[in-house]
Write a protein that binds this DNA or RNA. Structure first.
Lengths: 333, 333
DNA sequence: TTGTAGGCGTTATCAA
DNA sequence: TTGATAACGCCTACAA
């Protein structure tokens, strides 16, 4: 049998309560403390967390539910989350939907069941308003990363996608480009709309003409970027391209290189994300860096505050500014 | 107050035991079942998992402890793990060392404390024999991914690194290369030695001469591959290079391209890992694909079996064969 | 500073 | 098929 607090007490010649107090750092006489310590060591005693959680009604665990584990960004988010949790003595249970087609809201049960003290939902797909309302209604500590479906009074964190694209278009304008094509993303992604709006807004603000032929919808994949660029190349009439993510930017670059074009001499190109290869590639890719790790740590911070304040919510949407990273895929005209 | 099983019983005009039975799918009379179901719905009752875990001494959770969350491979491993766990009703708690310089063995406490039913340790660094012996001694359900420090009787899973490099050297030989350079990895990584051995063994087996000048030690980084290649280019006398990972292969490619060389016309190059860019790059990279997802699912499978068989261990080391992926970075001579 | 006693929400045993 | 009752291992008044 694995030893319990009772066994320790017996061996140390004292009571369960005293051992418990010792374990929780409450005042205990030097002498008994020593005896308890020895008993614990001798028995190789470890407290049973499930018993503790039952009485405390607190797990010191938060859950993170992720919609698509394949997404390359989640490890950075997780890293940020872990940093905050580690510093506060929390652990992190990892859930994914997808396989069983579960909905995000199904995971609210974890809160009801006392399995976790709070939940971070991360998805960059578009959320349904109903789902977000349900999370809000649950009145448990919950924070969203990604889309908030326009629901205001729920804590959420996202990248300011529109501002990222605006930065990048402004940059291209500054170095002389006037005819700027755009490779958009998939409809299901929440960021697609915001990035497109950023593109259109900055084109307008700079007094450039918006040429619909220079906008092509893709799916953020490498292959998608490749075909999108083939399309653009047939149309022509541009000197620079904004790809709405790095992966499709690389696909676009392949298409151009295959047709014998040189980057950046013939065309300038920028991406969005700053994935690791963007700095390795030849030429390296000018892009917009997403602050994933910070999204994770901010989310964890908010969640922990809600947990500590006993569920009181701060009702804020935190839009983090992405950062323009200038490298060598653009030519100054 | 959140409702308990007792409240449900009262409302359904029955006893706690009956409700408990209903919850666990044991036979209950149709009539009472209906009453219980209604009571549960009306009260919005959810069972308290911590109470259940206390009496069952079982959490239905396994822990995965990862040494370096930055590592790009962990999400694939995690995906494999999750697939198996999902199918078996287990959840997955995620731990990292690193931040507080904790050792892997510190996490054995999670088992003692009843927080998880089993543990998967994943690290591609070299493990100390002492640590692995300690895991083995604990006699809890535990499986290692990566190094096993030569300890035989502990379940572990790894890639057959040596065989991967052998495949790739044989391939280069087959298409006509005889002077094959090698860019090695960092000393701390467990795979470095095995891959180097694969290189040396196949060079010997093919009757080629082993030229020490064509072996350069690097650190698996992009920049490391870049400088390694500069070094090799000064020496010269090779037609192909084996980089011991993809990232350094790309660094090497940059160095060659910067000096005006064409790949594969001037030099052939292969990598190891098959990270996503390897298929996007121009030219795309011939490499060795690591079966990360399968490593995860195999590990989870082994662990679950150990848990079900009440801790009995299968004492096996599972070496998965990596797969040669031929793309366009090599020229047939 | 210490010990006694009661309770946390389940499941499991045993009679009925 | 059901209902008392006793665990499970811990924490926390309360009294000493």
């Amino acid at each position: 049998m694995t030893p319990t607090i009772k066994d320790v007490a017996k061996l140390a010649n004292t009571s369960k309560s005293t051992v418990s107090r010792y374990l929780n750092g409450k005042p205990v006489k030097k002498q008994t403390e020593e005896a308890v310590r020895r008993a614990i060591a001798e028995l190789n005693y470890h407290p049973n967390m499930n018993a503790r959680r039952l009485v405390l009604d607190k797990t010191q665990e938060i859950g993170i539910v992720v919609d698509d584990i394949t997404n390359r960004f989640y490890s950075a988010i997780l890293k940020g989350v872990r940093r905050i949790l580690d510093a506060n003595g929390y652990d992190c249970v990892f859930y994914t939907l997808g396989l069983h087609h579960r909905k995000e809201t199904d995971f609210l049960d974890l809160l009801y069941e006392g399995q976790v003290d709070g939940l971070i939902f991360v998805s960059f797909m578009r959320r349904s308003e109903d789902d977000v309302e349900e999370m809000k209604a649950s009145s448990f500590p919950v924070v969203l990363i990604g889309d908030d479906a326009g629901v205001n009074e729920i804590p959420s964190i996202d990248v300011d996608n529109s501002s990222g694209v605006i930065d990048v278009v402004n940059y291209l304008y500054r170095i002389g480009h006037r005819d700027i094509a755009y490779i958009s993303g998939p409809d299901g992604a929440a960021a697609t709309k915001a990035r497109m709006e950023g593109y259109q807004a900055s084109i307008a603000r700079l007094g450039l003409k918006l040429n619909p032929d220079l906008i092509v919808v893709s799916d953020w994949s490498n292959k998608g970027g490749y075909t999108a660029m083939q399309q653009l190349l047939e149309v022509g009439g541009f000197t620079a391209v904004v790809a709405s993510n790095d992966e499709s930017a690389f696909g676009a670059m392949s298409a151009m290189q295959e047709q014998g074009y040189n980057i950046p001499k013939d065309f300038s190109i920028v991406g969005f994300d700053d994935i690791d290869i963007s700095s390795w590639s030849y030429p390296s890719l000018t892009t917009v860096r997403q602050p994933f790790e910070q999204m994770g740590s901010n989310a964890a911070q908010m969640l922990l505050e809600m947990i500590d304040s006993d569920g009181e919510r701060s009702y804020s949407r935190d839009l983090l500014k992405p950062q323009l990273i200038v490298r060598s895929s653009c030519l100054t005209l």
